[in-house]
Every structure is written in structure tokens, then in C-alpha cells.
Amino acid sequence: MITISVCMIVRNEEAILARCLDCIKGIADEIIIVDTGSTDQTKEIAKKYTDKIYDFKWIHDFAAARNFSFSKATKDYIYVADADEMIDKENIERFQGLKQVLLPEIEIVQMLYTNQLEFGTTYNYDSEYRPKLYKRIRTFQWVDQIHETVEINPVIYDSDIEIIHKPSENHAGRDFRTFLTLLEKGERLSKKLVNMYAKELFIAGSDKDFIEAKEFFLNVLEDDERTMDEKKDAQCVVCKCCRIQDDIHNLLKNSIKGIADKNPSSEICYELGEYFYEMKDYKEATIWFYNAAYEAGSSLNIHYGGDYPLKRLSDCYRKIGDEEQAKIYEELAKEWSVK
């Protein structure tokens, strides 16, 4: 049977920490809590479950805190937990069964991360596989009889264990502040973080959040070292910023480039629809909302290729006076939203 170190980073989690630790105490062989600056009762609650509690100065870097927590682990595998997660009785039993039978060659176990849309900020799906259990000491082997290389692809197992994501609040504000802090420090965001920033804006961002991000995404568009995928994400953000600020020249400039792409984004079509809707040109708006729903594909938020434009088509036809079409699109929007 394998042994498991549960590694967590926490800060001001007194409202939900015990709920999480009650779930994992039955699967953990040790629990490691790394506190990044709590000012509430988080550490006092943690002491009821473990004596392995460490302080880590917050430097706006989740990876650094995660790496520190991993450095304290001593068991065969490391399970990464967040305070806003829960595991129900059925999945605790599955987890305990996994400990009994996990083969030693398995280096990463993925688990289904569920309930992501309730307070989602970067997720388009309610359930998806996520790596949660990692072999602490990974062995390396040479492969191939000639032109030999070290095998670096991990052996991954997709389990049937479900982890329930149940935060007490939306984390978007915290995330946007972190992005802005990194940019103020002159940090260069990776391709992944460019995508996550854009995605989070379209899923949970306010107009203010978009405007504060505008300069960064304009710079992405001008950066020759950025990939086409990064520029496509940036175009979506910039188009929305320009529509919000009534900057028609740059709205047209960036939306035309986005539409000329062989795989146009629903987000850009939607923003053009919103522009014409605001101008009370409802007939023209229907063209772009239709394109968002049926002719393009969502890049950052799946709703922009589904119920959002369908609802707007209903609004447009109601403004035009075509109640029959308005009801058709209204029903389509409802059907899409419950898929």
C-alpha cells in the first residue's frame, strides 16, 4: 500500500479549512500545511489535524509556495489539496481503495475536479480531469536501443475519484490583483498565463478589470515573440476593451483581423453584435450574434458561442418586432444553458 503526504497552501481559510481536513484525514499519512500569511484562526484550526505547519512569506507566486510545500513531504505520493475542496464518503472510499492497489510505475493520478462553474473564474466545464496525486521521488530510465534518450513522459492514470470544488467566494478579484502585481513588477507572463488571464476576464471580469488589462494585451499584440494563439486571445480582450471605451477605430482594426482568421472567435463576433445593439442597429447586430453562435468558435468562454449570443438574438428580434423569432432564440438559449 502506498503512503500519501497531503500538501496544502492556505491563507485566511478559517471558514472552510476544517471541512476540507475532515475529508482528507482518512486518506493522509501526513498533512503538511503551508501558511502564506493568515491573520485569522487558520493555523489554530490546522493544529487540530497536524503538527507540520510552516510559514511561507507570500511573494505573489503560487508555484513557489507549492514547491515549498512539496519540499516538506516524506511519503510515497503527494496529494495536492486546496481548502475549498471536499471529498464525499463514496470518493473517500475510492481513494482508500486506490492506495491499496496503485502500481508503483504510476507517477501521476488524475482525478475529476467537479462543481467548477458555481464560482468559476477560469473554467468552461463543470467537471474535468486534473492531476492531483504525484509520485514524490520519480525515477528516470534510458530508452531506445540506439540514439538513446531519458524517458521523461510521466505515467498517468485517470482515476474515477471526484473532488468537489466548493469555494466560499469567487476568487476573481484576488487573481486579477495578482496578475496586475506581476505586470507592475515587470514579469513576463507565460503563454499559459496569457490564456488564463484572458479566459478569466471573459468568465468573471468586470469592465474595470478589462480596462486595467488593456495595456498588457495591446503589448501582446505588438510583441513579435508572442505566438498566434496568444495574439488571438489578446484580440478578444482588446476588442471588448475598445467596445467598452467606445474606441471604434481600434475595435474595427482588431475585430477585422480576428474575423479574417480561418477560425474566428465567437467572443469577437459577440462584441461586434454588442456594438451594433448599443447603436440600436438591431438588424446588423443579429448578423454578428448569429456568427458568434453558429459560424465561429469560442476561444475563452464557451457561453460566447452558445447561450449568450442566442439570448441576444432573442433581444434583437424582440426590438425589431418579430416576437416569433424572439421566442425561438429564447428557447434555444434556455436549452443550451442546461446542457
Rank of each mutant, 00 (worst) to 15 (best):
H60E: 06
I108D: 05
S71L: 04
F202K: 00
K89N: 13
L193P: 00
K89G: 10
R318T: 08
E323N: 12
S337I: 07
K75F: 02
E271Q: 05
A18V: 06
V109A: 01
E107C: 03
L98P: 09
K214G: 01
K72E: 02
K48H: 13
L102M: 14
K72V: 04
R19V: 02
E271N: 09
L182S: 03
L189Y: 03
E274L: 15
S159G: 15
K132S: 05
I106T: 08
F216D: 09
G205V: 08
D246A: 13
D126W: 01
I4R: 01
I302T: 12
F217S: 03
N153A: 11
L201Y: 06
I108V: 13
E169P: 10
K48I: 01
K135A: 02
P309M: 09
L98M: 04
L221A: 03
A81N: 11
Q245D: 03
I31E: 06
N250Q: 01
R318E: 08
I16N: 14
D51W: 04
D224G: 11
I244P: 01
I32H: 01
I152D: 14
V6Y: 12
H249W: 06
E151D: 12
I108Y: 09
K334E: 15
E274T: 12
A234R: 09
C242K: 07
E187F: 08
R66C: 11
N91H: 12
T3H: 08
I163E: 00
T39M: 12
P131K: 01
E225R: 14
E107W: 04
Y134C: 11
I256D: 14
W142P: 01
T50L: 03
D144P: 01
I53D: 09
K185Y: 07
S337H: 08
S71M: 05
L221D: 00
F289E: 00
I2V: 15
V238S: 03
K166F: 11
K89F: 09
S127W: 09
D82V: 04
D224Q: 08
E44S: 15
Y329P: 04
F217D: 04
E30L: 08
F70P: 14
C242H: 02
A285E: 06
G305I: 07
A15S: 13
F56K: 09
E148P: 08
